[in-house]
Structures are given as structure tokens and as C-alpha cells.
Write a protein that binds this DNA or RNA. Structure first.
Length: 497
DNA sequence: GCCGGAACGT
DNA sequence: ACGTTCCGGC
């Protein structure tokens, strides 16, 4: 059957071009056939994941959530990460369209969603009909395997690592960044994403950089406290969720997932994802407020064309963000969690995958579940398995279901992935803190000056006792390190003296 | 509505 | 691996 599954729905125009095809390819982007649409390959799931090029339901859900036109069908609602399927039938229909499954219905779709429970991508919001909640730490990971994170063990190590990792964090340096994003040209002056951001002067540079690595400055990796445990979430801002999730998501997943997509239905070939501009205006308040009006409005080189009605999500109207934000974002107030011992053994089994580079060093605390545990990198299970066997691998005992009731990310951070032994892989030479940049004040206070964890609880110690300032959080945005590197150096000197 | 087992398809 | 389909049970 050759159904026309594309349903141009969700074909979000990726964003006008800062990328040229050449640039994209240098960065390891994937090109979508003759259409010339490029996406960074990290926008896909890890290669180790078979079928990674195929749209997954949660991708699709996020896409829908991102699109304003589907707000009446599905939308963010309630807590952080929570969304409501307002029109189950319609969502199912759209999903069926996408997957060329004409008989799709909500019952089936919801079954697929339920499979995400075990993977901790989603969980159900009990008592609320058609309401689910994303576990963004997982979602983000899948989209941002962060490449060779194993060799860049400096990000947020202590926030989501389940306490087993070394307390050290390396400062973000250009070198570290390079190792993080090896595909970025090292010194292609003026051409690389890196340089673009690195050379951006002053506060504007920060903005750009922040946006360059949205996954570092937003979403899961950044919150230091489980959304549900956070203080009152700004429910009532100009828009509910001010910042876009992943500029690549919609484009990447929707455009490439259906091979039958008629070439003509795609965006003009000059549209390429533009990490620099995509969601600037979709940043949470602290971020978006930094944007100069011109930038927010999408000035500059952005072509006027191509934005399918959504006006880039920023100009004029409120952006319909995809991922709900956690404005507080990350705190570098690392806490020394020397004890990883409390982490469940089961989780350890699931996620600790020695020898796999991908997840190791994921100090970001991004879940490994999908990237490693869930996907079974390393191919432990080599052959074919019976369904029951397969299931057994995921859920080893019925009781384990309890951990699936994740209602906040602290659970995630503690009961699963972060547990992998980063420590041994992360030989941080010396520095044990992430430099705080992008803040007017300059560097992060030395570790010793950070408030000690008050709660003896290993999990709670992961959480800062006081919410981060409303201003730009201690972003991990690597790019920040670039710009203020000199400042850091100065600060370090002071600290050392 | 929601859950999760089972078989099956890709 | 990631669903899809079906289904019994709550």
C-alpha cells in the first residue's frame, strides 16, 4: 500500500537558513535526499537504535504539541511536561496518517503510549483523562545523545547522575566543547556554528549560544529540581510554555520519516535548521527577555518565506512552545553525593552499560534509558527473543512497576540511568565545578562556597534548596564558556589565590 | 478510560 | 526496538 502518509501536518519548516548544505554536512548533518533538507544527525536517535529514522510516537506527540494548529487537539497543560490529548480520535487519526495505519485509533495509540511508561519517556497523569506527562530527561537524551559525551564529563554531573559519579566537574572550555560536539569545526572561522556563537560579542553572543545548544540550556538537563516539586510553575504567563523544545525535532522527524513523502511537499531547499535562530524567541522568560527585539522578531537574514503560518513561533504572537520550560533551570550548586549506593540495583542493571561510550559521561543527567538501557546498546541480547523474553528484559519483576510511577525528575535521576558509572570514565583533571558563565557576576563560586546539601537524602541532595534566580540560570551552555573564558580564567586565578 | 499481556509486523 | 492489533480485566 502506498498511502500518502505524510500529512503535511507537522511539517514544520525547519527554520531558514543559517546552515548551508556544506556547513551542515561538515557538521555531520543528514541530508534528506534530493530535497536538500539537512538535519544534524544527532537529531536522530543513536545509530545503535534500529529503525531510528522512523518517527516515533513521542516525537510525533511533541510535534503536535509544537504546532499551534493542533492546540485544540493536543496541548500542554497542567504540570511541567504534562499534556492533554483533547481530541484522542483526532490524534489517533493523525498518527495513523503518519504511520500509514488507517485503522489507528486512540486505543491503539494509547497502548503505544503505555509502552513508554516502562521506558520512562512518558507516564500517565493519574486521574486526568487523556493526560500524560513527558519525562524530558529521556526525551532530550534521545534527541541529543550529545555525541561523545563520554569524553566530556563535565556537564551537570551531579544533578542527575544518581549520585554515583564523581563530584568533579570540568570547566567548560572550548576544548571540552569540541569534544562534546566533535562535529563542529574546530576553527572554521566564521563558518561554523561554533564560531558564530563564539564570536558573538557580549550579551547577544550569549543569547545565540544559549540557543545554539538548546538542550543544554533548557529542558531536562537543566532543571535542578523535579518539575513537580518546583515551586509554583508560572502557569499564566503570556503563554503557557514559552519555549520551544527542539528546533530540529519537528523538521527532522517529520520530514525524514516518511520515505514516501512527495518531494514537492517539502520545504524549499534553502531551509535548513538553524540552531541559532530557531527558538530564540521561544526561550523561557529569563532567556527570551534577553533577546533584542530585532533578534526575537527574526530579523537578520531570515527569509520571510517558508514559515508556514507559524511565523517562526515568535514574531507577533506567542510562540507555541513545544517543551514546557523550567525557568529555574540548572543550578551548578553541585552537591557532593558521595553515595550512589542507594540507587536501585535494578536500575543499575538496566542502565549501566559499561563500554558504551554514548551514555557515559552524561553528566547532564540525561536519561540513558533510551540510549542505552532501553535500546540495549552493546547488544547483550543478541538474537531473537520471544516476546516474553523481551518484556522480561525491560521489566524484570512485576514490582518494578512502582518505579515507573515517575512523577518528577528526581525519580528519574535517582532510579535509573544516571547511575552508570561515570566516575571511572570521567577522569576530570582537577577542576571540579562547572564554570558559571553568562552571568554578570562572572564565575561560579567555588565549590567550597556552595551551600552544602541540607537534606541527607541522596536524592534530595540533588536538588538545590533554593530555586535558581530568575535570571539566566547557570547555564551549561557550552558556548558561554567560549565567550567568557577569559573571565573565567581571571576568576580562577582569584579563587586559587 | 486505562492497564498490560500476548502475538505479530516491520 | 517500536509499535500495531487484539483483548480480558479493572
Amino acid at each position: 500500500m502506498d498511502c500518502n502518509c505524510v500529512s503535511d501536518l507537522l511539517l514544520t519548516p525547519p527554520v531558514p537558513a543559517l546552515w548551508t548544505p556544506g556547513e551542515a554536512s561538515r557538521m555531520g548533518a543528514l541530508f534528506c535526499g534530493s530535497r536538500g533538507i539537512a538535519f544534524p544527525d544527532w537529531a536522530y536517535k543513536p545509530e545503535s537504535s534500529p529503525g531510528s529514522r522512523q518517527i516515533q510516537l513521542w516525537h510525533f506527540i511533541l510535534e503536535l504539541l509544537q504546532k499551534e494548529e493542533y492546540q485544540s487537539v493536543i496541548s500542554w497543560q497542567g504540570e511541567y511536561g504534562e499534556f492533554v490529548i483533547k481530541d484522542p480520535d483526532e490524534v489517533a487519526k493523525l498518527w495513523g496518517l503518519r504511520k500509514c495505519k488507517p485503522h489507528m485509533n486512540y486505543d491503539k495509540l494509547s497502548r503505544a503510549l503505555r509502552y513508554y511508561y516502562n521506558k520512562r519517556i512518558l507516564h500517565k497523569t493519574k486521574g486526568k483523562r487523556f493526560t500524560y506527562k513527558f519525562n524530558f530527561s529521556k526525551v532530550v537524551l534521545v534527541n541529543y545523545p550529545l555525541l561523545d559525551m563520554a569524553s566530556s564529563p563535565f556537564l551537570l554531573q551531579n544533578h542527575f547522575n544518581g549520585g554515583s559519579a564523581a563530584p568533579d566537574c570540568s570547566p567548560l572550555t572550548p576544548e571540552a566543547l569540541q569534544s562534546l560536539f566533535p562535529r563542529l569545526p574546530e576553527s572554521g572561522r566564521g563558518t561554523s556554528l561554533f564560531d558564530r556563537v563564539a564570536t558573538a560579542p557580549g550579551p547577544e553572543g550569549d543569547k545565540l549560544r544559549l540557543d545554539t545548544f538548546p538542550f543544554l540550556s533548557s529542558a531536562a538537563p537543566c532543571y535542578s529540581k523535579p518539575p513537580s516539586l518546583l515551586g509554583p510553575y508560572p502557569r499564566n504567563p503570556p503563554f503557557d510554555y514559552p519555549w520551544g523544545f527542539n528546533p530540529y525535532l519537528s523538521g527532522a522527524f517529520s520530514l525524514n520519516n516518511c520515505p514516501k513523502l512527495p518531494p514537492g511537499s517539502l520545504y524549499p531547499s534553502h531551509f535548513y535548521p538553524n540552531p541559532l535562530q530557531t527558538n530564540l524567541g521561544q526561550l523561557p522568560h529569563p532567556f527570551s527577555s534577553l533577546l533584542p527585539p530585532g533578534e526575537v522578531a527574526g530579523g537578520g537574514e531570515r527569509g520571510a518565506a517558508g514559515q508556514t503560518g507559524v511565523t517562526n513561533g515568535t514574531a507577533g504572537g506567542q510562540p507555541r512552545l513545544c517543551l514546557p520550560p523550567y525557568p529555574g533551570a540548572l543550578s551548578l550548586g553541585r552537591t557532593d553525593i558521595g553515595n550512589g549506593g542507594s540507587v536501585g540495583e535494578r536500575e543499575r542493571r538496566e542502565t549501566n552499560t559499561p563500554g558504551t561510550g554514548l551514555g557515559l559521561g552524561l553528566g547532564l543527567g540525561l536519561g540513558l534509558g533510551l540510549g542505552l538501557g532501553g535500546m540495549g546498546l552493546g547488544g547483550g541480547a543478541g538474537g531473537r527473543q520471544s516476546p516474553s523474553e523481551r518484556r522480561g528484559g525491560v521489566k524484570q519483576d512485576p514490582e518494578s512497576d512502582s518505579d515507573l510511577e515517575i512523577t518528577d525528575l528526581s525519580d528519574c535521576s535517582s532510579d535509573n540511568e544516571p547511575d552508570f558509572s561515570i566516575t571511572k570514565e570521567t577522569r576530570l583533571s582537577g577542576r571540579s565545578q562547572i564554570l558559571v558563565e553568562g552571568k554578570k557576576g562572572g564565575a561560579l563560586p567555588p565549590l567550597s562556597s556552595l551551600p552544602p546539601p541540607v537534606s541527607p537524602h541522596p536524592l534530595k541532595s540533588l536538588v538545590p534548596l533554593t530555586p535558581p534566580p530568575p535570571s539566566l540560570p547557570l547555564s551549561l551552555s557550552p558556548s558561554m564558556a567560549l565567550v567568557e573564558r577569559h573571565r573565567e580564567t581571571e576568576t580562577l586565578k582569584l579563587i586559587h589565590s
